[in-house]
Amino acid sequence: MSQAQGSYYLPEPSHWPIVGSIGLFTLLAGFAGWLHGGSSLWIIVGAIIVIVMMFGWFGKVISESESGQYNAQVDVSFRMGMAWFIFSEVMFFAAFFGALFYVRQWALPWLDGAGNNAMTGELLWPNFQAAWPLMDVPNPEGFDRPKEVVGAWGVPFYNTIILLTSGLTVTWAHWGLKKNNRTQLITGLFLTVALGALFVALQAWEYGHAYTDLNLKLSSGIYGSTFFMLTGFHGLHVTIGAIMLLVMLLRAIKGHFTAKHHFAFEAAAWYWHFVDVVWLGLFIFVYWL
């Protein structure tokens, strides 16, 4: 059994790390095989193992937390771990935003002969003209030309309002928890999860519209690839965040968390606010400017 002695917490040996490793290896190996024409069976098997591992491992942590086994040292370690995890996510998105900035500010002008690169365009891409978004190119072999850009003032604007509102509802839920108001906590979490699901549904509709009506695809040059990489990974993070908050909602309904003991809720809220901030950057630099 795990033990908490003084300021040092010693967890009991667990089989879940090796189960997770096996699941991830199976999932990635299956995906690699599928890309080379193999069956998707091992992808499914790996995904099932990972899901079972997550339920088992997180369930174990929850049961230990609710039984009072964790001390202040564990709480600090959880907070540091979540902070570093969010920092790694910030760096993840910074790489994609950096690629977008590099292309728009440097690569396209260079190809058009800007600065001391007068011969760059003639040697690498004759008759190229810098423009953003890049909708057309000379000699467009393998290039799916989009019909138009995805405008900022349709679904993206509505999704901005939805995510900003969800940030308010999760904060309202946190205030309810601090006041021991379970009704406010549960209602706020329910509204946040519902808004997150609505965001993902609207983004899925937007993707269908962009792909079928606007002919915007990953093969639509740098505009298509940066658009789908940034918005797609953000949509994945919204989905993960909504699942995290759904788990918090179910735990709140079961009576978990107190005004002084609720870091799991705080961690999910931190993640959700991070998702909100990233979307503001996406709305400005991908859709608007």
Rank of each mutant, 00 (worst) to 15 (best):
F97T: 03
G98Q: 07
Q129I: 14
A94E: 01
V103D: 12
M91Y: 05
E122C: 00
R145M: 13
E122T: 07
M135E: 06
I86G: 01
A118P: 06
Y158R: 12
Y158I: 15
R79T: 02
W172S: 03
V149A: 13
L108M: 15
W110V: 14
A130S: 14
P140H: 08
A131H: 13
F128I: 08
H174L: 08
R79S: 04
Y158V: 15
F85M: 13
G167N: 01
V155D: 01
F92W: 09
L134K: 06
V137G: 09
W172K: 02
M91G: 11
L124G: 05
L164I: 07
W153I: 12
Q129K: 15
Y158A: 15
G167L: 01
M82E: 06
Q105S: 15
P146K: 07
K147P: 00
F93G: 03
P140I: 07
S166W: 00
L124V: 13
E122F: 02
I162G: 02
T165H: 01
F128R: 04
L134G: 01
A131L: 05
M80R: 09
M135Y: 08
D112W: 14
I161P: 02
N116Y: 11
A83D: 03
R104I: 09
G121D: 10
E141H: 07
Y102I: 05
N139I: 06
A118D: 12
F93Y: 08
F87Y: 14
M80Y: 04
A95D: 00
G81E: 05
N116D: 13
F101I: 09
A152P: 08
M82C: 03
D136Y: 05
V170A: 02
E89A: 13
W106R: 08
F143H: 05
P133M: 12
P126W: 07
W153L: 15
M135I: 09
V155F: 02
V103C: 11
A95P: 00
G98F: 06
P138I: 07
P156M: 13
N117H: 15
A94V: 02
E148K: 12
E122W: 03
L163R: 02
P138F: 06
P146F: 03
F101T: 05
M135W: 08
W125P: 01
T160A: 12
G154F: 14
G121R: 08
P126L: 08
P146R: 09
F85L: 15
A83H: 04
V155E: 07
A130R: 09
A114P: 04
G167P: 01
F87I: 15
F78R: 07
L123A: 11
A83P: 00
W132L: 05
F97K: 04
Q105P: 03
F87M: 15
F157W: 15
F101Q: 06
V150Q: 02
N127D: 13
L123Q: 10
H174S: 10
F128S: 05
V76D: 08
N116S: 12
T160F: 10
L111W: 05
L168G: 01
V90H: 06
T169S: 06
Y158T: 14
T171A: 11
L123P: 00
E122K: 10
W84H: 10
H174Y: 12
T165M: 07
V76H: 07
V103N: 11
E89Q: 14
I86P: 01
N159D: 13
R104P: 00
A114D: 13
Y158N: 11
A99R: 00
Q105C: 09
F143W: 10
V170I: 09
A131C: 03
F96L: 11
Q129P: 02
L123G: 10
